[in-house]
Design a binder for these strands. Structure first.
Lengths: 215, 215
DNA sequence: ATACGAATGCTCGTCTGCGAGTATACGGGC
DNA sequence: GCCCGTATACTCGCAGACGAGCATTCGTAT
């Protein structure tokens, strides 16, 4: 827990993992990762690949093995994971699995500023989101069923999790939407008034001292 | 949907929102945002505050109103949101609410590389995570109940959502853990073998062509 | 044979994120 | 009246991230 990871980009973990199977040159890592769909499990930007690889090498987690050309192609450097690299990857994986981190999604951000829009507009937006979520769920479920035949369960777990979270979100949105539509959400008119006038009732302005518990 | 946001950092949205209530100088924005707990709804780094404010000004979303010193304090510049700024904030909010985005959490990343660890270690790690999640849920629920008395529902929605998602995750982890402990998860021994030998059965190596549906 | 589009494999420059540091002012204990 | 801790208010500089572009090669239709 002491020092931050020397190469913090998650792409680095992906690289260590994939190059752990056999030595590879960067472009091959990219292809394999893409083919395995890892780019959907991590926020991977391919523009960062060579920077990350170079950094991994600089910190001794990856080492160049061979550097030659084949055919007329530009020079390729093949990298191998070092022992330190393997250890780093394992340790990183352990941390990711064992330690939940607060990662506010952009939806939370949206919810937390939605007061600025009126409740009616918010309803419309949420309906839109709900439809999108359902389309996505549908596609994901279908894809998962297709892959079940091909791949061991171990490789499908991330997809199952993603689907579960997506379902949970959809359910929650449906609930909120129901409250809004049926008018059981408290003080919709106050909210509408706030939208028009921009004024918060003074006692609410004191929300400045919202207590927050220690983590 | 055409052009990317001129200032992409979510801190900018927070700034626009808070300065929309009344003109403020940067440090005051920070205090108010912190006091309202917005820093838990968005990935806010205070080091970026002044950069972000300057960028907002550069793009005409914020404008300097007054710039003087009081007491012996360093000079402060007070900013006001422009019409363009208000519009940008609303539009951004709409997008955040209506459009779900894939934001792979670090847990997904962990799941997608957990094959490298053995199943037994994974079980231990997941148990650890589950406990942490439950502690966090407990604290969050308690805090929410406390705030219910003070604040209108509108300001609590984000917390409710966060709790719901946390519950969903905990439930899913419990499920996976049960499968692992009871041995109903398929081919645990294959997994253990892979861990030791580092060899993947060749037919699985073809997972390289995992089909992915279009979004 | 040849032309053209797609795939391969990589580089570069910009932009900005953000951690760490700094400097002053105020309050309150002794 | 002095000192120290804490709050206030910012500045700086480096390290990455990553979009866009570039050069080469291969496949294939003509």
């Amino acid at each position: 827990m002491a020092k931050r990871r020397r190469v913090a980009n998650l792409l680095a973990l992906a690289v260590l993992t994939v190059a752990g199977q056999r030595p590879m040159h960067p472009y091959e890592m990219a292809s394999v990762l893409r083919a395995r769909g890892k780019d959907e499990d991590m926020p991977i930007k391919w523009g960062s690949l060579y920077t990350v690889v170079r950094n991994l090498e600089k910190h001794g987690l990856l080492e160049a093995v061979e550097s030659g050309r084949q055919g007329g192609r530009p020079e390729r450097t093949v990298y191998r994971v070092t022992d330190a690299g393997r250890e780093e990857a394992d340790d990183w994986t352990r941390e990711l699995l064992s330690t939940p981190v607060r990662e506010p999604s952009s939806f939370v951000a949206g919810l937390s500023v939605m007061g600025g829009l009126g409740p009616d507009e918010v309803m419309a937006l949420l309906r839109e989101r709900l439809e999108a979520l359902e389309r996505r769920l549908d596609a994901a479920r279908r894809a998962l069923e297709g892959e079940r035949a091909q791949l061991p369960r171990l490789f499908l777990v991330e997809s199952e999790y993603a689907i579960a979270m997506c379902e949970a979100e959809a359910g929650w949105v449906r609930g909120l939407l129901a409250e809004l539509t049926e008018g059981t959400f408290p003080d919709l008119d106050g909210w509408r008034a706030y939208r028009r006038t921009g004024t918060v009732p003074p006692e609410v302005a004191d929300l400045a001292e919202r207590g927050r518990p220690a983590d």
